[in-house]
Nucleic acid binder design. Structure first.
Lengths: 200, 200
DNA sequence: TCCTTTGATGAATGACCGACCAAATATAGG
DNA sequence: CCTATATTTGGTCGGTCATTCATCAAAGGA
């Protein structure tokens, strides 16, 4: 055996991920990325290959961590309606305070690369399908529990995907929490049945 | 007087607009832009200044033509509900066949530039506010005509903005018409009151 | 007719980027 | 301790980018 790697690959990948997430692919130079990763160019190329490969690795890591957790949040609760509420609440928090203030790497990549890079578009499409499936599952459970409006059908999963993509776009303009809240509440109001009135 | 300009400035601007629209700012090189404009670099710089200024000119032209027409489509009909339906129908058509297959320049710019360019973000925010105002006007007229669900309030304008931004993102992955239709129909279903059944 | 003014041309410029090495260096096993 | 082997370092290379400039073409006015 020879020398062991001096940096943690996943830590470096996370740093690259954040850079890509914030600035996009074209606007992130290898120099900037290496500084963010605290790794010299030679080491970066040895570990990740060329820039494009680093990006796909970052995108893969994003789907495996950030978006996997999002999907889990939707599908975890027994109540479909609660899953949707939990997910949107957390999304808004992250858009105001956390990582999601830069939107969503998937969304950003779709806008930046569409048509120009089939492989990347494929990865992005896969995640979008996952998200849609999670929404669909939550909706069917909600429907079974009578939590849904009569009009809400399977097409509502497509609507939810679009709403979330839209929120990801809006998040990049750093809107106030109330604006995001308005979007989420209006979406849920159109989808969910009125909860039994509990006003005293 | 000296020599007259050999090219039409607005035609050239339209060509640049399409290039930016399709590929974004960073991925559009001056070389590509000049080829699309059928204008030599020197002439382009004389007429439009540096690349960034060309982009803001293109963005301005976009708001004055494409998005002004969109706003008109929302606000023109006497019926607010009809305005929304007209707008979404036309949007879907343009996303499947027309210009909007590249999404929306405003949306793309927000994703590409957010935080990095306050002036551009300002222009984009202005258009988003216009769009929101158009939706709000259509919604109040619809409410007055009894075309709205009871739950739908002013927050629904924010929802509509988000939905449209989301559709703009999805459009870049060239989805089938049915998918976009599902989004629009689900959005309207959550907003509008059931029309009086007219089945024979 | 000639001259001034303005636009068009396209090669040239300097900066920077992604990609890639080769030498120096540090570590693990023998 | 020594040697094999991997990583790190810092630089180089070709190419592309936005931008400019010296030069040419055309359109009036004198």
């Amino acid at each position: 055996m020879g020398r062991t790697r001096q940096f943690d690959v996943d830590d470096a990948l996370d740093a690259a991920l954040r850079t890509f997430w914030e600035n996009g692919f074209e606007a992130s130079s290898m120099q900037t990325l290496c500084e963010a990763m605290r790794v010299q160019p030679g080491s970066a190329y040895a570990a990740f290959g060329p820039k494009r490969d680093l990006f796909t690795a970052a995108l893969r890591r994003y789907t495996e961590t950030v978006s996997a957790e999002a999907v889990r949040r939707i599908t975890a609760p027994a109540s479909g309606a609660q899953g949707l509420r939990d997910y949107l609440d957390h999304l808004i928090d992250a858009m105001v305070d956390g990582d999601r203030r830069w939107g969503c790497l998937i969304t950003n990549s779709l806008v930046e690369f569409a048509e120009r890079d089939p492989e990347l578009t494929g990865m992005v499409g896969l995640h979008l399908a996952n998200l849609r499936a999670a929404f669909e599952s939550a909706l069917t459970r909600a429907a079974a529990a009578g939590e849904l409006r009569p009009g809400a059908g399977p097409g509502s999963a497509d609507l939810l995907v679009a709403v979330v993509q839209g929120m990801n776009v809006l998040a990049r303009s750093r809107p106030g929490r109330d604006r995001l809240r308005a979007v989420a509440d209006a979406a849920l109001a159109g989808l969910l049945a009125e909860p039994p009135a509990s006003t005293p």
